[in-house]
Design a protein around this nucleic acid. Structure first.
Lengths: 155, 155
DNA sequence: CGTAAGTGATTGACACGTCAACTAGCTGCC
DNA sequence: GGCAGCTAGTTGACGTGTCAATCACTTACG
């Protein structure tokens, strides 16, 4: 009858704290950098990256939302803002009266092409370069393990 | 004259993607859970946790901000909202006319005491339980390595 | 003493994310 | 055909984070 302990062990707690701390600092620095270097938000970056990479600059709204695993509402607001900034436009879908294509503008293409190498460089500098190939591999395995585990867990 | 390559290798890219994906899903699920279980936001939780843990429920504004590594502006907004919700109050600091103490109310103490075990349980369920002790240890080392590396890097 | 510089904290404007409610077009089925 | 229910996408309200400006107080130093 061993009940689950109420708290984490010292080691577990320390590991959790380190992970959270690292992840916050890393994401924070990267997104501030993208913003400063390219004038785009991190969200703009992801959307444009996936849109051009996967759809060649033109994708159905929902396909894009599923691709980046965002709620449709989030995507809708985001696309609205990006439209204002001139990065994308919307086009009606002839096959489905409800549907829409989201299309990268020339400015959008240019923005992502300029931003991508700079961003990659920051990922390398702050993250990849911190680790040996073995460590990087270990982290990838661990990440995938956590992901797989989460998928089995309810909610 | 080996220039830094413009892109990441397949393995590096895959590791980065896994890490980002895992981290987003994990943080997302945890914060939705805290919100649903306790009615507090993830930010409320952290603030109350640190405030009670470290300061016994009473801390100087800036000390708290430094502890959680937040900008003072963010903390100010957050404390304002938490005051509205009745979780904390502000008290003037007699030693320094500019300063303020932020103090957990009875409701704040109760909220964090109820939320903490539930939150820990989710961390365990979604994260700790996914990994062997060795993997957890490896992740902690890797996190600390990335943190240490980032501190040496400018900006 | 007095004032310039620094520190503690607030504020306002704006970008972003979430949730729930809503509109509009499509699909299945009688 | 017609309507029930599903899917695509929008909207508005609200909570949150960031940045820059501001205010009030304290400290250093001449």
């Amino acid at each position: 009858m061993n009940a689950t302990p109420r708290w984490l062990t010292t080691e577990q707690q320390a590991a959790w704290d380190s992970f959270i701390h690292m992840q916050e600092k890393l994401i924070g620095r990267l997104s501030r950098r993208v913003q400063a270097d390219s004038g785009m938000s991190a969200s703009d970056y992801i959307v444009l990256a996936k849109l051009t990479e996967t759809g060649g600059g033109r994708m159905r709204f929902m396909d894009l939302a599923k691709l980046v695993e965002w709620e449709k509402s989030r995507m809708s607001h985001q696309v609205g803002r990006m439209t204002k900034r001139g990065l994308v436009t919307k086009e009606d879908c002839p096959d489905d009266g409800r549907g829409a294509f989201i299309v990268a503008t020339a400015a959008g293409h240019q923005a992502i092409e300029e931003a991508a190498p700079v961003h990659v460089e920051q990922v390398r500098r702050l993250f990849i370069d911190a680790l040996t190939p073995e460590e990087l591999d270990a982290l990838a395995r661990i990440s995938n393990r956590v992901l797989a585990h989460m998928e089995k867990q309810p909610d």
